[in-house]
Design a protein around this nucleic acid. Structure first.
Lengths: 185, 185
DNA sequence: GTCTATACGGTGATAGAC
DNA sequence: GTCTATCACCGTATAGAC
């Protein structure tokens, strides 16, 4: 939340769209629904975002930039590699799994065939950022080379996303820790 | 494929629906589309499956039963635990990832909030079957107890599903092996 | 910026004829 | 089993007034 409670319509639309995407993916929101939640008409939403693709790109980019800016800087932070990794695992649980949600990336990935190209590129870039950050953490203290670090990053990111799938499908939150516990140190 | 090439309409509908769900999830197919692919009208599809939920349940149940029947019996098969596990990892790659698809379970899991109750239960049961099978394999040769085996099963299943997400989002098939290679022995 | 009005097509589902 | 016809929506998107 920003200091001032008041939000302009554009941000409000993005907030609601973000929520809807997280809960149901690309097909789970409509301009009409978003408009109704704010108390305006769908035509007004189109004024701010001409197409659904435009809106989705904006939402995803904002989310990604915000995500990236909240990641501790690997070089300057005084945290150990293990602290950084555990923090990443915990963050995924607190922000996503505990809210009975899946990551916005997972949600959009299963809709990949229906996404406009720009959204697909934005999405791929988001994964790249996560993998690069994790990779740089893995290289931090160990003598790991870049290739090895990227493999570890893939392994970890896959585990987290897959764990959230198990939780969502079974309704059993404990499966998250079952699935990713081996990553903690 | 069955011996005889001819299929009744009902099976044909299920085949096409299965394909559509795998490619786009619960919202990616309509009775009209399915009907058009067969050369009948949507009302005729409703004759075989009254609602979309009915059709999806049928498809998922058939898929699950077929999947279960193709799993090697842990007790009677002469394969080692490692052979069984590697076979599971390879099967996921060949049948799903190499076809640029995601598992039908992953696709439906991200649609969970929009699914009729019966579909959701069928889906949860599918995961249970996979986890139980993997668990029983883990108990096969090691001295692992049931709780430990279930944890390993969760870990492995999460890795496979998560790996397929990475592949789908980045378009890079090699990420599958990067993410799950650690499971092989 | 937001509105009204509207175009145009897709959607799940049903009634009743053949 | 399959059809025609139809219902009551919901979807994205646009033109033009205020």
């Amino acid at each position: 939340m920003s200091k001032t409670e008041k939000k302009d319509t554009k941000s409000l639309i993005m907030d609601l769209a973000e929520n809807a995407i997280i809960e149901g993916g690309f097909n789970a929101f409509s301009f009409r629904e978003l408009a109704a939640q704010i108390g305006i008409k769908s035509a007004s939403v189109h004024y701010h975002f001409p197409t659904k693709g435009d809106l989705t790109v904006s939402v995803l980019r904002r989310y990604k930039d915000n995500f990236a800016s909240e990641l501790p800087c690997v070089e300057t932070s005084h945290a150990s590699a293990n602290q950084l990794l555990n923090g990443f695992i915990d963050g995924f649980k607190t922000k996503i799994v505990d809210n009975h949600n899946m990551s916005i990336c997972t949600m959009l990935t299963t809709d990949v065939r229906q996404l406009p190209d720009e959204v697909r590129e934005e999405l791929a870039d988001f994964y790249r950022i996560k993998l690069n950050w994790l990779g740089s953490v893995f290289m931090l203290e160990t003598g790991m080379d870049e290739k090895q670090a990227q493999i570890k990053a893939c392994q970890m990111l896959a585990s987290l996303h897959g764990a959230s799938i198990l939780v969502q499908a079974t309704g059993d939150v404990e499966k998250y820790e079952d699935a990713v516990g081996y990553l903690r140190q």
